[in-house]
Amino acid sequence: MTFSYYPGCTLKTKAKDLDRYGRKAAEALGVTLEELPDWQCCGGTFSMSKDEIASKLSAVRSLASAKDKGNDLVTLCSACHNVLKQTNDAMKNDPDFSAKANNYMKLDVPYNGETNVIHYLEMLRDRVGFDKIAEKVTNPLTGKKIAAYYGCLLLRPGKVMQMDNPENPTIIEDFIRAIGAEPVVYPYRNECCGGYVTMEDKALAKKKSNKVASSAAENGADMIITACPLCLYNLNKNADESDIPVYYFTELLAEALGVKD
């Protein structure tokens, strides 16, 4: 099983663990992740303005490059996943945007959203299969009560992400079961941690992060897992009312598969 892989900037610097464990786990599962040689920063956030063209082009470039490789494109960071899927959707379904983007980029063959973008979790669920993962687990996390934190960017907007029920998702809970642990469902798992507002309004970011972390703790979770470096940062730094630990889901996957170090 071979996929093109889009790591994104943060995974090369502050979120190296998310990337490193993701690659090790994939290898253990017999999945080949081929890093796109010429990927560029996705832009961090998708502009909702229809007349923002230039700021979306770097994502289009990566998508077009993946099309040439011919494999589905796997992303790991929630934000990259969100930007790439939304940009791809706009290239496919917004003729005005795709015409302008293609015009600007002057590719040999115009790009019209042909690349299939999936999140690493979707790859685990739909291509590898959680049952297959469970079979390969050598070091099950038995007895651990884990709260899945989806945040906003993994699932929303639901019509574009098409990953799971945005209000009552199960993909990470099923993942948690596959690695032998017990999922903790709590109501704020799909509410925002504050995101980039931590740059501008620490108080707001603290309020939002605390709400998520305390909701998980209140429901008896030992730890929180996430796919997003910014969520991890906010829940670690800004959720100062609780000391519940936060991990990347790939770290636990690598641990369960016995390939952590």
Binding site: M199, P229, L230, Y233, N236
Partner: peptide, 19 residues
């Protein structure tokens, strides 16, 4: 002044985009 050692640059990029 806004940085700390853990802040992922994704936050900086996003903040630039939004602000």
């Amino acid at each position: 002044d806004m940085l700390d050692e853990d802040l992922p640059q994704q936050a900086i990029v996003s903040a630039f985009r939004k602000y």
